[in-house]
Write a protein that binds this DNA or RNA. Sequence first.
DNA 1: AGCAAGTGATTATACGTATAACCAAAACGT
DNA 2: ACGTTTTGGTTATACGTATAATCACTTGCT
Lengths: 361, 361
Amino acid sequence: MRGTINEKIGSGGERAGMVTMSDIARRVGVSQATVSYVLSGRQSGVRVRDEMRQRILQTAADLGYRRNDMARAMSSGKSYVLGFVTRIAGQESSARMMVGAQEVASENGYSIQLMPLHGKSPDYAAAFARLAEQRVAGVLALNLKVDAIELLRQETERFEIPIAFMDDPPPLDWAMRVISDDRGGLRLALEHLIALGHHRIGFVSAQRESPLAEQRRALFLDLMAEYGLPVPNEFVLATDWVKPEIVEPAVHALLAPGRPRETYPTAFLTAGDLMAMVTMRTARALGYRVPQDLSVVGFADFISATFADPPLTTIAQPFEEIGRCAARYLLDCAHATNPGSGAEIVIPTYLVVRASTAPAV
Amino acid sequence: MRGTINEKIGSGGERAGMVTMSDIARRVGVSQATVSYVLSGRQSGVRVRDEMRQRILQTAADLGYRRNDMARAMSSGKSYVLGFVTRIAGQESSARMMVGAQEVASENGYSIQLMPLHGKSPDYAAAFARLAEQRVAGVLALNLKVDAIELLRQETERFEIPIAFMDDPPPLDWAMRVISDDRGGLRLALEHLIALGHHRIGFVSAQRESPLAEQRRALFLDLMAEYGLPVPNEFVLATDWVKPEIVEPAVHALLAPGRPRETYPTAFLTAGDLMAMVTMRTARALGYRVPQDLSVVGFADFISATFADPPLTTIAQPFEEIGRCAARYLLDCAHATNPGSGAEIVIPTYLVVRASTAPAV
DNA sequence: AGCAAGTGATTATACGTATAACCAAAACGT
DNA sequence: ACGTTTTGGTTATACGTATAATCACTTGCT
């Protein structure tokens, strides 16, 4: 034993079960620094005999040592936490992205923290301030409005916190966007319908729910034009919100008898699974059989799509994968001190064919 | 100005945008401690002139000061974070509880952190160790298996971390349980059906999905006995999992023609909304009209219940409220250094009557 | 023998905040 | 005029970890 170990002993007011590195050091007869080097697992820095290393690790296990992330974070200036901000935390889409992000985060020793955005007009300033207070290593953002995005930018840029927007379509040159390939998905769905012989195809979306819905409608029109299929104006239903009592009348008005049958759409694409479900329901109430008389394609592939009647053919959004990619990007930034380029990752979507689509009559 | 301010000046390697209390102190010409007292907002401890208080607050705002929670946590030994562990983070139920918990947490300056539990056999030990490393102030637990619960207990008791189980039915005397009043909900649903003239009532659940399903089945039988209604064995469907391909055959076998009509159930209670949806679908495929020929009641009130065909009458579980209560309890513990009594909070459920139930024929 | 290089540690200090303990000056009471 | 209280702060230190700088001792080389 070289050198003297001068630890203040018997600190007295120890909090419950809190074993520190110094406790281990005292027990083994080395300095706290040595314990830190060993437990950090990094082989750079200081050399430690293998036997000593083992003894330290063993003692740590014996005492039930749990490293103190608060102290670690403060000392290193990094927090190993990613913030997740969204207004729709209670929805399946958000939850699944969070799970994906969580997956890669935890693999790298990070965690995900949900940030508050509640009610009709959430206190964005407070929420984003908390992000800064936590010194999060990155921010996952979902479904924010433009003014909120601007606030977020202001708050994060001073701290050089990288942001990854997931499924949010504002054109940004200062942050990463991880989005799903909506165009590709719609194309797959459209080709599926066309292959089934459909050509009078409508679209149902709720424009004020999210910019996504609006964007998908535009993509639909674009693709229809590309395939040379005419789209009468009345085939495109854009309700305000995704609510049955709003969507049903619209669908009803379009499908209710009163015009020659050959002017009706034989299939619908939709901007979401729930929209698809209402559409099917309304059609059935009018005497249509789904899919024999009317094919319907959803967008999302929520769990309930499997349980719908009939099981819903739908464009599957890779929610988990979006979360994974976003988290991966943020971790890259954190390690490379990358300022956060204005890039964009597009995750492929795919079509899940179930029973809500059938050959056109 | 009394006393000398001896701050080391020009620290040089300042990290991006990191304004500290010392920076403010230097600017205003007071000590860091004074700034701390002012910014903490507590009026106890040290007295500060009102003018000085204003100057400090103003300077903090001017410099864009954001308090460093990492340092705060380390100094005070508290983390202001609640951990949320569950295997079903991607589901709506979990997400909504999380939102509720988040709501009361953020009101009190706390945040919620999602803990990793992925895949078929998650690494519970690692996940719970991380809870300890983070020194979370409390743990929200959902849908854990008994062995995981035991591990969690071991990990948390040394650190005196309180736990709140949400919707988990193991009988525990060492932790809080916040559960929904399933019995009350089932009673409401049953009374609703009885009032509609039903008395041949069946039950559909997936026993291996969660202990909840099993428990609900027991409650159902109990209540039926209480109301003096006989329940033939074949009326109680207990499939393994909540999957259409498993549930459909079971429902089909019961409802398919082949026996005298008056031996069939005229209504079903279920252990979950999705089960209810499959049940309705299978019945319809057999020629039943829902609700005219068969009434079905769900359990949960997920978003999709409104979009089901027909809109689902269902026992609404107050997911958000469960989360709120659980979080509130944990915060109480954190402040009262309450060791976490083995109490239990039961949140009322209520019945949402939509269109999947109708008078018995 | 003498010096460089390598080994295996140690010391010292920073990180930013909270808080107990202390202190100087002013106001006040008798 | 002198002790006491009040006002308005200051100093000092703890919290647990990371890490740069340093040091004692051993080994190898010429």
